[in-house]
Design a protein around this nucleic acid. Sequence first.
DNA 1: TATTGTTATACTCTATAACTATA
DNA 2: TATAGTTATAGAGTATAACAATA
Lengths: 158, 158
Amino acid sequence: MGTTDAFGLELGNLPDMLTIELRMGQILAEKAFSTISHTQVSPGLFMILTLIRNNPGQKQASLARSVQLDRSTMVPIMDHCERQGWVQRQPFPGDRRAHAICLTSSGVELVEKLEQDARKLETQVTAAMGKQKRDQFLTLLKEFQQALLAGSQVEVSS
Amino acid sequence: MGTTDAFGLELGNLPDMLTIELRMGQILAEKAFSTISHTQVSPGLFMILTLIRNNPGQKQASLARSVQLDRSTMVPIMDHCERQGWVQRQPFPGDRRAHAICLTSSGVELVEKLEQDARKLETQVTAAMGKQKRDQFLTLLKEFQQALLAGSQVEVSS
DNA sequence: TATTGTTATACTCTATAACTATA
DNA sequence: TATAGTTATAGAGTATAACAATA
């Protein structure tokens, strides 16, 4: 009767729920990304590194808030990045409690490599969906995030 | 210069990558869903239970493939659902290796409760984005998944 | 030979609570 | 009092490898 998936299972009203479809889309996208990029870097870490590159000198806690992580979760992530030589913790001007997080040049290189991988995936998706739809999709994805942040569903603790 | 997020951080070209935006969207959606639904059930489990409801009597392995999980990962999930009284493992007609997975009536009730919660979230998103955009977003989300499954990026092992 | 369910095991990601040093 | 970073700890969620039963 209804829609079936790639394995012949009945999806019923599953495809009518944004939460579920979003989850499925993200799972597929992460698998595709890790197939293309042979780095050990997850999309989650990719996001954090890009955020640091675009905002050098931020506090760990600010970065954590931006990606919806607890600040304690950020500690082992930064430890790992520092050990790999991708980021540096520097003194934060005017606040001796805080660290200013920056990318090293090797971190910048890594981000650029990952961006290239991401672009490969984008190219494949664009080829399959068409450029107009792909762009439209990205636009709506951003509006969807705005909608969630605007509602009281997700806290925007500053 | 560029776009900034809710916390004032520069996003740079981050918003131009589907993988990243999808990830962020999904994180926000899961937080919103768990704020609305006070069940202990994650969107991931919600998806699995709905799939079982729509496809009663499937093998564990088929369900696992459909949601992109290893079949060994499915074992503790089904154990948990069985202990909670949501699903039953029954003999699979014609294959004595397999189990036929079905929802109990209490499992059906749970799924209906979760669907109600999901609809609440949909209503809030629709109010913020507008119905047309929300529907368009869902359509494109499905096409995006198709694009990934169609490409060789994600294995469709049968 | 291949598949189904399972076990044992380990790895990743994340959060909570409590501590310290600053602010 | 509140915030930044940290530690210790615990809980999800997931995968790999190997096994027995069955196809």
